[in-house]
Amino acid sequence: MEMNVNATAAPARDLSVTLSGVRLQNPVIPASGCFGFGYVMAEYYDIDCLGSISIKGTTLNSRFGNPLPRTAECPAGMINSVGLQNPGVDKVVEVELPKLREVFHQPIVANISGFSVDEYVEACRRIDGAEQVGIIELNVSCPNVHGGGMSFGTSCESVAEVTRAVKAVTTKPLYVKLSPNVTDIVSIARAAEDAGADGLCLINTLLGMRIDVKTRRPVVANVMGGFSGPAIFPVAVRMVYQVSKACSIPVMGCGGVSSARDVIEMMMAGATAVQVGAANLRDPYACPKIIKALPEEMERLGIDRLSDIIGCV
């Protein structure tokens, strides 16, 4: 697949954005959990066209995750309950990241989750030293594990505690990935900012559920799961707008993004970069298609520099 995003646009439109000093050639980042550790996708296209990659949620120790089935769907989205399956941070650093480095030559986003403050701290400390990690994304919003993940992201106190503790042992910009499953996302975002977060990522999935009416049982073995896809895009835009107005640190917008126009809308709401999740699972070429379409969409909307529109609403 030919991926020279600026070749056809004259004059060249500037797609680059900067997150806490980390410059991305464009704002499009596959979201954690929807792109594995990245290198598998390099079998299908040249992934160097991407702005960055947020790797599969990584924990201190290896995890098998939840029982199968792990997925369900609706017309405009899907539910997943993978449960943070990953080989553990040491294997990620020793095995997965070097494989990614062969096919992706830009800074990556390291998504880290945990079940205690100590686990978050230790996993972040171990991945912080990997040279290709540009940003650490603290996942306090995974809805699919008990006693960890989202339970850290639903109170201001625990978000602040884990943010502060991780910030103390890391050198890379620290972005906190927030859960939409809260009453007031602005107060959680402020708590992360006050505790030293360099940026925010939102939103993670909404807690959802489907039932098989023939068997009268939940479709997903873990009963509930994280709901993502185009259906949640308006929720994500709203929360990115609210949070970016209330906070002064950069935001990565995430949730239901499936087109270049969605990317632009999310940036107008206040996002500096935009993550693409479920769209990758339906169409493996979703991200390169979006990147290719961005200059044309910018031209249509009279945008020369993408970074000019951040938070313009």
Partner: peptide
């Protein structure tokens, strides 16, 4: 056979335990 989401190896929705890990 398993209920899949992506079908091409990135979402981890269909896994099996093997001697070499999941």
């Amino acid at each position: 056979e398993a209920r899949m989401a992506c079908g091409f190896g990135v979402c981890m929705c269909c896994v099996v335990q093997t001697a070499d890990g999941p």
